[in-house]
Amino acid sequence: MPTRDLSQSLDADATVYPGDPEVEFSPSATHDDDGYRVTRLRLGTHAGTHIDAPSHTEPDGKNLDEFRIEEFTFDTRIVDCSALGAREPIGIGAVPTRDEIGDAELLIFRTDWDAHWGTDRYFDHPYLTADAAKECAERGLHVGLDALSPDPSPSEAGSENENKESETEMEQEPAGVPAHRELLGRGRFVVENLTGLADLPERFELRAYPLPLAGADGSPVRAVAVW
């Protein structure tokens, strides 16, 4: 059975959302001093390839430990959005029809923005419009991306985006996290910072198991495609 790890490396160079804790490693015990090795790890619940719980944006949303473990295995369909440029919206027209997706449970919008992981350009990823996110959520679909967020991310480089013709057009980017709110507000999951989607089959099973953290609003995952 073919499998592929779709997870970004969780190291000290991992890209994190602006304001989130950086990923830090430091020795807690060493072979020389203690006869064994233990590493202290500091990171946020949304570091690396991770899954968002509804409680990430919704005060009354469920935490990850309120879901059964089998709910983190998804019949998945890839949506190819790789032709989009920096900070371009993924509109409702990109969402496949019910006939096209069949019984899929999760849509992964492939932008190929994982190629920019670890660089400032990673923050200028394409993003989902609120209408596209709402369409997914109302149809009971979870969403995944090979990007930092389904919403626009803060970015100094955004002002240099060649795909925007004017400052007025740039100001039309949505404020806040409307795509998150549409999805998480309806009890859907969002899986972010996936990688290695380019030559996967259109349909596969995604296994994205979170850490067993109590009351977590999100968690790093080992995202694995199986087909």
Rank of each mutant, 00 (worst) to 15 (best):
residue 5 D to E: 12
residue 8 Q to P: 00
residue 8 Q to C: 08
residue 16 V to H: 05
residue 19 G to M: 02
residue 22 E to C: 03
residue 35 G to A: 11
residue 40 R to E: 12
residue 41 L to Q: 02
residue 41 L to A: 04
residue 43 L to G: 02
residue 45 T to K: 09
residue 47 A to H: 06
residue 57 T to S: 14
residue 58 E to V: 14
residue 61 G to Y: 05
residue 66 E to I: 09
residue 69 I to G: 00
residue 73 T to A: 14
residue 73 T to V: 14
residue 74 F to K: 03
residue 77 R to F: 00
residue 79 V to P: 09
residue 89 P to A: 15
residue 92 I to C: 04
residue 98 R to P: 01
residue 100 E to A: 15
residue 100 E to V: 06
residue 101 I to A: 01
residue 102 G to P: 08
residue 102 G to F: 06
residue 104 A to N: 07
residue 105 E to L: 01
residue 110 R to A: 11
residue 113 W to K: 00
residue 113 W to M: 05
residue 118 G to I: 00
residue 119 T to W: 02
residue 120 D to V: 03
residue 122 Y to N: 04
residue 124 D to E: 15
residue 127 Y to P: 03
residue 127 Y to C: 01
residue 132 A to V: 05
residue 133 A to W: 06
residue 135 E to H: 07
residue 140 G to L: 03
residue 142 H to S: 12
residue 142 H to G: 04
residue 143 V to W: 03
residue 145 L to Q: 02
residue 149 S to H: 01
residue 149 S to F: 02
residue 153 S to C: 14
residue 154 P to H: 04
residue 157 A to F: 03
residue 158 G to S: 14
residue 159 S to A: 11
residue 163 N to R: 13
residue 164 K to E: 11
residue 171 E to S: 14
residue 173 E to V: 11
residue 175 A to N: 08
residue 176 G to F: 06
residue 183 L to R: 01
residue 188 R to F: 11
residue 190 V to R: 02
residue 192 E to L: 13
residue 195 T to K: 15
residue 197 L to G: 12
residue 203 R to F: 14
residue 206 L to D: 02
residue 208 A to Y: 08
residue 210 P to C: 14
residue 212 P to I: 15
